[in-house]
Amino acid sequence: MQIDPSIKSRPKYVAPELVASAGLQLFVSESDAGHLLEPLYRQCSESGAQWLVAEPGNAPGTLADSLSGYLQRVLSDAPVTTRLYVAGSEGFLWDIRNQALSAGLVDEQIQLAPPVTKARRLFCTHCYTLMEGVTSSPHTCSGCGRLLLVRDHFARLHGAYVGVQINAEDPEEQLEQEVLQ
């Protein structure tokens, strides 16, 4: 499946770079994505940096309460000069980013590392169900059972790609599966 360059909403990710002047260097990662941030963390002084790691085995799509609550406390005491670096799956990146924005940070302060997998979070535009780990299209919605075309349109609010029914005219029609890029 080709990525359509005309789709502006799909995020482009670049490897994070350390902003040396930050008053607090804050790293947040899923347990299998730490290697993406480690070189940056090693450049920081111990006093000026903190690293929060999401525990493995959390239910997909829900930020573990412990991480979310801890991040909330760290951000509420953080200086305006904080820089946040995030690594993990794509949905996780945007969950952390959205939590940081609600704590007052702006996108300029937040760097999201390229997602560690191509698996997508999918948002069903019919029943609003969010599905995790979607790797091919079309995908059957776990909420309403419709067969969804996984589009490249990305909703930052949900950290998810948009899914729309692909066989509305003939729900019996089955379509060939494509692996998502």
Binding site: S21, L75, A78, V80, A103, G104, L105
Partner: peptide, 30 residues
């Protein structure tokens, strides 16, 4: 200052320059 603080400067160029350069050196997002 905490997250989400916006700074606004109005005055002579020297003051604007002083605040901007101090803020940037401290790591304020532009």
């Amino acid at each position: 200052q905490g997250p989400g603080t916006h700074v606004y400067i109005c005055g002579p160029e020297s003051l604007i320059e002083g605040v901007c350069s101090t803020a940037k050196a401290l790591g304020w997002p532009e």
